[in-house]
Design a binder for these strands. Sequence first.
DNA 1: GTTATTTAAATCGCACGCGATTAAATCACA
DNA 2: TGTGATTTAATCGCGTGCGATTTAAATAAC
Lengths: 145, 145
Amino acid sequence: MIDRPLSLDDLLCFALYSANNAMGRLYRPLLAPHGLTYPQYLVLVALWQRDGQKVTDLGAALNLESNTLTPLLKRMEQAGLVQRQRSQEDERSVIVTLTSKGRELEKAAVEISRCILEAAGEDVAELIRLRDRIQTLTARLQTAQ
Amino acid sequence: MIDRPLSLDDLLCFALYSANNAMGRLYRPLLAPHGLTYPQYLVLVALWQRDGQKVTDLGAALNLESNTLTPLLKRMEQAGLVQRQRSQEDERSVIVTLTSKGRELEKAAVEISRCILEAAGEDVAELIRLRDRIQTLTARLQTAQ
DNA sequence: GTTATTTAAATCGCACGCGATTAAATCACA
DNA sequence: TGTGATTTAATCGCGTGCGATTTAAATAAC
């Protein structure tokens, strides 16, 4: 950010790192009662939006690959949140589908979102602007890499 | 963010999660040649700023606790980057000090920061503003928790 | 001066992220 | 039609983050 005496607080990367950790700490107690972790919750959000996605689709949505998703999805399957089945048309693909239990949790998500929003601050318009700026940054970082 | 059909792209938390992962992916190939991971790099930044910190001090700077830091610092000690020694005044505390090798790496950090900045975009003033907004958010999340 | 409390690291277990590799199914195409 | 290339998950290993607990040292209290 600034050249000379490199300081943690100067670093955009550390700001992101710190904010992400703080967000995770905030979600944890909200998700734990439902037996969910934070990344698992994101998978559910993706599936509530569109059920029956391939692992690759979820990977594209979440910017993750099978080495992360496969074990995570297996744990979610163990927990009775999703079903995993090989596609008929293409045996390479695995389709991930919500169970009724997984679908049911969408109701709880409303309250969880409310809690996070409350913690993040009152000015929602400002938060949306911030989110958009971060998304733009992510896009730039991804094309750079 | 927005109430109805909850979408990944609506979520501030997912924006942070995604940006942080992308940042990590960007740093990895820059740090790997020096045998560093991203969190280890952040520890070095903290120590370049002020050498000889207690584990608790580093934890306060990085928002981490000993359950994360102790193993990480042991790996850095193994790698010859830092030294860990019990404080004389208070045997409970462990002081972490840079080795010459750890100090040496500060030079490389300049080029690494340049690469990241280049990937993040041209408008540095905008990046600083973004960083500040994220820091403000983190502060709010931490007081909420 | 002994005991209770507090503080600082460390340990343990579990769930990510991800580089590297593998195995299997599908595709391209000669 | 067969064979090499590509695509898709899965597997493995390692380094975090963090809740929960433990150990030891220092401090407070009485």
